[in-house]
Amino acid sequence: MEKNSDLKFKVISCCSVIGFIAVWYLCTDILQLTTDITLPGPVKVLHTFIDKFTNKSPDGGTLLQHMWSSLRVALSGYAMGIIIGVPLGILMAWYRPVDLLARPVFDFVKAIPGLAWAPLLIILLGIGFMSKAVTIFVAALTPCVLNAYAGVKQTREVHMWVARTFGATRRQMLFKVAIPTALPHIMTGIRVALGSAWMSIVAAELIASSSGLGYMIQQCRGIYRPDVIIVGMLMIGFIGSVLTWIIGIIERAVVKGQTHDA
């Protein structure tokens, strides 16, 4: 009985998606309620999608070229964010003076969306790889720091006592007790940072760039090509999902047997 109702709701879900596309098709291609410069029909979007793999116009790059360009910048900035952010968060949580001094500065910095640094960085570093990568770095840094910090902070006292009873040095306690305890939180931070890095690269490319998916959709706004914009948006969403999925696999592999509520 339970199985039947599950099936029923799955069918409803499928109908919902099909229905949505049908309404879209009906409004655009059949009833012509919209024009191609506001909302193109699903057929047109699908056509553009396939075409865009080989066609460089109207924005000077194929879909894969733009994808690669965005990914390259996003992942370099993201990696820097993790490499610097996680240890910084651990240090802040482990050494009280660092905590007291760095935390207020961080509380303020985290209120600034990563993207807001982009113009300043563009002035300082010029339009190009570096300014964008540093923007992504700033955007990815904050979640890494805050989660690593929270993770180490919640180390159970009793585990510390056990470690101390066995004669662990403070250094050993950090590496054998605190950091393993913090791992689920650290991984959460890394996952959240991915979302914010991916969002920031798109935004940075919207503002100033000469390639990338964000650049592509921004260019196509100027020349009224919503079909390319929609292809770009779906592609951005798709890559975001794939990256999140990969991080999820890594997270489950690293965080064996430890549960944690985000």
């Binding site: 409803i12 998606v17 935004a203 919207l206 919503p226 770009g232 948006m233 779906l234 951005i236 999902s241």
Partner: peptide, 21 residues
């Protein structure tokens, strides 16, 4: 069952990507 699949398509698209549209 009706809304979730549609939401799942939209959710991974960062909100900033909607700006041009």
């Amino acid at each position: 069952a009706i809304v979730m699949p549609l939401f799942n398509i939209i959710r991974p698209i960062p909100p900033v990507a909607w700006i041009p549209l």
